[in-house]
Write a protein that binds this DNA or RNA. Structure first.
Length: 784
DNA sequence: TCTAGCTCTGTTTTT
DNA sequence: CAGAGCTAGA
C-alpha cells in the first residue's frame, strides 16, 4: 500500500506516492542514514523527496550538498526537485558530481594549498602523455613500464589518499616490485612536480587535494561543515576511499548524512570504488539507521526473480529481498547465434518484430554490451535493417581531436604553464615549429623549472639558441596567445572561442583542406561554439551572471558524452555499455556477448572479487529491463583480428532455470509448468519459518510489508541453482542449528542443499549477513 | 619538417 | 582490426 505524501506549504499539486519504507527513509533526518535501495526501488524518488522534505522543514537550499557520479543524474534530480518545490529553490541546491563540486571548491580555496587560481584540468590523455614522457626521460624500459599501467598505479594511490611524498613509505611499492615496476615512485614524484609546474590537476587530484585541503586546514573545513548542513550521496556503492573520507570529514561535525546505494550494483572498482564503503557505513556511523527499499517498481516478476537468483550467487552483499508486484511477464530468453555477425542480425530482427507486432517504439529498446568495440556489429545490423539508433558513450565530444585542439588554445590562454596544451597546439595549424624546437623547449623548461611558454617568448634569455626564422615563428605564436590573455577579463567566452578559431588560422586551414574529414571537423567546431552558447545561457539562467572561461573549461573537462544530449526525445534504439546503462531503464533490454571471456571478462576470472563484480555488472544489465529481457551469445566471434569460439557465460547458469527459456535444447517444453515446488520458497531466515504454510508464488499487492520493521517478505528468488529436494539434515546439521564460523562468527543454519560432497548450507550470521557455505570447506563448529 | 606507409602491439568498464 | 609509433624518403 502506498501512501500519498503531500508537501505542505508548497504547491498543492505536488504529491508523491511513497511506500512506507520510502516514506520512513525520507522522513528520518536526525542522524546518519543508509538507504539500501534495490534495483528499480525508487532510489531517485526517495532522494529527491528527501531533499524536498528538508527544504520543507526549512533548511536553506544552499546548505544541502547532494553528490552524484554523473552530471546527468544531478541534472535529472534538480529538475525533479524543481517540479516539487519550484525552480527558485532548486537553483541554489549544492548539487553536482563529486568532481565538479570539488573542482569549484578547489578554485575558491586554491591559495590554501598552493594551487594556481586558474588551474588546468588534465584529462586522461594529457596525463598519459606526461607519464610517457617521464618514462622516456628516466630511460626506463617501456616494455615493462606502460603509461596506462603506471597511471593506474598513481591513480590507485591517490584514491587511497596517498600522495607522491608518502608513496615510498607504503606497501604499494612492494606491489610495484611484483609488477616489475619498482621505479614508479620516481615517476610519481616527477609527475606530481610537473603537474605543479604546469598549474594542472588531474581527475584524481580533485579528490586528493580536496581531502588535503579539508584535513590540513581546520578553519576551512569548519566553514564547509557549517555550510553543508545536510549531505546526501547518490550511488554510494561507487565511492572510493577518498570520496568516502571527504564525506566523513564534512559530516564529522553534525553527522547529518544520508547515503543511498545498492551494493549489488557496485561496478566501478576499477576506478577505485570500494564496495566496503557501503558495507562498512554503519561502522563509521554506529548510530546510523538502515532503510531497505526492496520493492521493485520497474520490472516484471520474472526479471526481478532472474536477477535475484543471479546475484544470490555473490558472497559479499547486504542481504535483501527485492520483489516485484507487477505482472509475471515473459521469461528471459537466451539465444545462441552462430557468429557475432549473426548476433547483430538477431538483435535487429527481434527489434523489428517487437516494433511491428507488439507496438514497441524504438526508444523502448536498449542493446547492452560489455565492451565498446562490440557496438560495431550491432550498429551494422541495425543500419542494414533501417532501424534508427544512437550510440551512447563512446568517444566523448570533448575527446575529439579538433575539439581538444580548440580547448587546448583556451587552456593555454588561461594558463600559460599548461604544458600539454602548449605542446598540442604550438604547431597546429602547422607553423613550422617542429619536433626539434619542441624538444629544445622542453629541455630548457625542465632544466630551469620555467614554463615552455616563457622560454618560447624569450628563448635567448633562457640560454636557448634558435635560428632567426624559428624565433620569429615562436614569437608569432606567443603573441597570438598573449593578446587573447590580455583581453581575457572583458572577453565574452563565445566571442573568445570564435576569435581563437579564426586568428589561430584553424578555420582557414580546415577550409583549405576541403576533405570530408576537415569538413566534419569544421562542424565539430560549430558544435563547440553551440555548446559554449548553451553553457552561457544556462549560467545566465542559473545565477544571472556571465560565464567565465575557467568555468567553461571546467565544465568541458568534466562533461562526458552521456551528459550532452537527451537522446530519449527521439525515437531510436539506444546502444551502450552496461556501465553506461546504470541508472537507466528500458522496456526491452538485449544483452549481447553473454560469453565467457567477455562477461565475465578474461581479466576477472582469477579473483573471486573481480568475478563477483562482473556478476553485479550482469545484474545491472538485466535489471534495466521493465518488460522483456533477451540474452545472446555468439559461438564464434572476431576478437583482435582473429576468430575465437567462446562458450556461453557461466552467469547464465547462475540464473534459476525457471526464469529462462532457450537454454539447453532451447525447448520451453522441458519446463514442467504444472509442478508446484514449495521447497522453492524455503525461507532464508529462521524468523520466516513462523508461517510455513500457505505461501503462494505471488505475494498479493495488498499484503505488503507493514513498515520498515524486521518483517520479511516471501523470497521470490531461489537461493540455489537446482531446486532439488532439500535434505532435512546433513550430518548433525539441520535448519535452526547454531554454528560458529572461523571468520563470520556465530549464526543459524537456515537452509540445507544438495548431497555430499556438494552439500551446502545457508547460514544467517549475526554480524556477517547471510552466506552459503560449501560444507566440505566450511570451517564451522556447532554451538549449543 | 612533414608525411605516407610500415610494423607492432594490444585489448574492459570511466568521473 | 585498429591505433600508435617508427622509418624512410621527399
Amino acid at each position: 500500500m502506498t501512501v500519498p505524501v503531500f508537501f505542505y506549504g508548497m504547491d498543492d499539486m505536488v504529491q508523491q506516492e511513497l511506500n512506507p519504507a520510502q516514506q520512513a527513509a525520507v522522513m528520518y533526518n536526525e542522524g546518519p542514514s543508509l538507504v539500501i535501495a534495490g534495483a528499480g526501488s525508487g532510489k531517485t524518488r526517495v532522494l529527491t523527496c528527501k531533499i524536498a522534505y528538508l527544504l520543507h522543514l526549512g533548511l536553506a537550499p544552499q546548505s544541502i550538498l547532494a553528490l552524484t557520479f554523473t552530471n546527468k543524474a544531478a541534472r535529472e534530480m534538480r529538475t525533479r526537485i524543481a517540479d516539487m518545490v519550484g525552480k527558485e529553490q532548486a537553483r541554489y541546491l549544492q548539487m553536482g558530481t563529486f568532481h565538479s563540486i570539488f573542482a569549484r571548491i578547489l578554485r575558491v580555496e586554491s591559495d590554501a594549498i598552493g594551487l594556481k587560481h586558474e588551474y588546468s584540468i588534465y584529462d586522461t590523455s594529457d596525463s598519459k602523455s606526461l607519464v610517457k614522457k617521464l618514462i622516456k626521460e628516466l630511460a626506463l624500459d617501456d616494455t615493462l613500464y606502460k603509461p596506462a599501467a603506471v597511471l593506474g598505479r598513481i591513480s590507485r594511490a591517490k584514491n587511497m589518499l596517498i600522495d607522491d611524498r608518502r608513496y615510498p613509505e607504503t606497501d604499494l611499492i612492494k606491489e610495484d616490485y611484483l609488477l616489475k615496476m619498482p621505479r614508479i615512485k620516481e615517476i610519481f614524484a616527477l609527475y606530481a612536480e610537473r603537474m605543479r609546474e604546469a598549474g594542472a590537476i588531474d581527475f584524481d587530484d580533485m579528490l586528493l587535494l580536496t581531502y588535503q585541503l579539508f584535513s590540513g586546514h581546520a578553519e576551512i573545513l569548519r566553514k564547509y561543515q557549517d555550510l553543508f548542513q545536510f549531505i546526501l550521496v547518490y550511488e554510494y556503492q561507487d565511492t572510493n576511499h577518498a570520496q568516502s573520507q571527504i564525506i566523513r570529514l564534512l559530516a564529522e561535525k553534525h553527522h547529518r548524512v544520508c547515503v543511498v546505494g545498492d551494493d549489488a550494483q557496485s561496478i566501478y572498482s576499477f576506478r577505485g570504488a570500494q564496495i566496503e564503503n557501503i558495507l562498512n557505513f554503519r561502522k563509521i556511523y554506529p548510530e546510523s539507521r538502515l532503510f531497505k527499499l526492496e520493492q521493485n517498481y520497474r520490472s516484471t516478476q520474472n526479471i526481478v526473480g532472474a536477477a535475484g537468483s543471479l546475484i544470490a550467487k555473490n558472497r559479499r552483499q547486504i542481504p535483501k529481498q527485492v520483489f516485484s508486484t507487477r505482472e509475471k511477464g515473459d521469461p528471459i530468453r537466451v539465444t545462441a547465434a552462430s557468429s557475432d555477425f549473426e548476433e547483430g542480425c538477431l538483435v535487429a530482427r527481434q527489434i523489428t518484430r517487437l516494433h511491428r507486432d507488439e507496438g514497441y517504439d524504438y526508444r523502448d529498446f536498449a542493446v547492452l554490451y560489455r565492451t565498446n568495440s562490440q557496438s560495431r556489429m550491432v550498429e551494422d545490423a541495425l543500419r542494414k535493417s533501417g532501424i534508427p539508433y544512437v550510440i551512447y558513450g563512446g568517444v566523448s565530444f570533448y575527446q575529439r581531436k579538433i575539439v581538444k585542439d580548440v580547448v587546448a588554445y583556451l587552456r593555454l590562454i588561461m594558463n600559460h604553464s599548461d604544458e600539454e596544451a602548449f605542446k598540442r597546439i604550438v604547431n597546429f595549424p602547422a607553423r613550422g615549429i617542429g619536433a626539434t624546437t619542441i624538444d629544445k623547449l622542453t629541455d630548457a623548461a625542465h632544466r630551469q623549472g620555467v614554463p615552455m611558454y616563457d622560454i618560447a617568448c624569450r628563448p635567448a634569455a633562457y640560454g636557448m639558441s634558435v635560428n632567426a626564422g624559428t624565433q620569429r615563428k615562436l614569437e608569432a605564436f606567443t603573441t597570438l596567445i598573449q593578446e587573447f590573455t590580455d583581453q581575457l577579463p572583458d572577453y565574452d567566452v563565445y566571442d573568445l572561442v570564435r576569435d581563437v578559431v579564426v586568428k589561430s588560422t584553424m578555420q582557414e586551414f580546415l577550409q583549405a583542406e576541403g576533405t570530408s574529414d576537415s569538413e566534419s571537423e569544421l562542424q565539430d567546431i560549430d558544435e563547440l561554439l553551440n555548446m559554449v552558447h548553451q553553457f552561457q545561457e544556462m549560467r545566465h539562467e542559473e545565477d544571472g551572471g556571465s560565464a567565465t572561461l575557467a568555468e567553461f573549461l571546467m565544465d568541458a573537462a568534466l562533461l562526458t558524452d552521456a551528459d550532452t544530449d537527451d537522446a530519449s526525445a527521439e525515437s531510436r534504439v539506444t546502444l551502450m555499455t552496461i556501465h553506461a546503462a546504470k541508472g537507466l531503464e528500458y522496456k526491452v533490454i538485449q544483452v549481447v556477448g553473454v560469453e565467457e571471456d567477455l562477461l565475465p571478462s578474461m581479466h576477472s576470472i582469477d579473483r573471486e572479487e573481480d568475478l563477483e563484480e562482473e556478476r553485479r555488472l550482469f545484474y545491472v544489465a538485466i535489471t534495466r529491463a521493465e518488460q522483456r529481457c533477451f540474452l545472446s551469445y555468439a559461438k564464434s566471434r572476431f576478437r583482435n583480428g582473429q576468430s575465437c569460439y567462446p562458450s556461453v557465460s557461466r552467469f547464465v547458469d547462475d540464473i534459476d532455470a525457471q526464469f529462462l527459456v532457450g537454454r539447453g535444447d532451447s525447448e520451453t517444453s522441458r519446463v514442467d509448468f504444472s509442478r508446484q515446488d514449495t521447497s522453492f520458497f524455503r525461507s532464508p531466515s529462521s524468523a520466516f519459518r513462523m508461517q510455513p504454510h500457505g505461501l503462494t508464488a505471488q505475494p498479493k499487492p495488498a499484503s505488503q510489508p507493514a513498515a520498515t520493521g524486521g518483517r520479511r517478505l516471501v523470497r521470490l528468488a531461489p537461493r540455489t541453482q537446482t531446486p532439488a529436494p532439500a535434505p532435512a539434515s546433513i550430518g548433525n546439521l539441520s535448519v535452526g542449528t547454531r554454528v560458529e564460523h572461523e571468520r563470520f562468527g556465530k549464526g543459524v543454519v537456515t537452509a540445507l542443499d544438495g548431497t555430499s560432497p556438494d552439500a551446502r548450507i545457508t547460514v544467517q550470521f549475526e554480524n556477517s549477513g547471510q552466506r552459503i557455505l560449501l560444507l566440505k570447506f566450511a570451517k564451522i563448529k556447532i554451538i549449543p
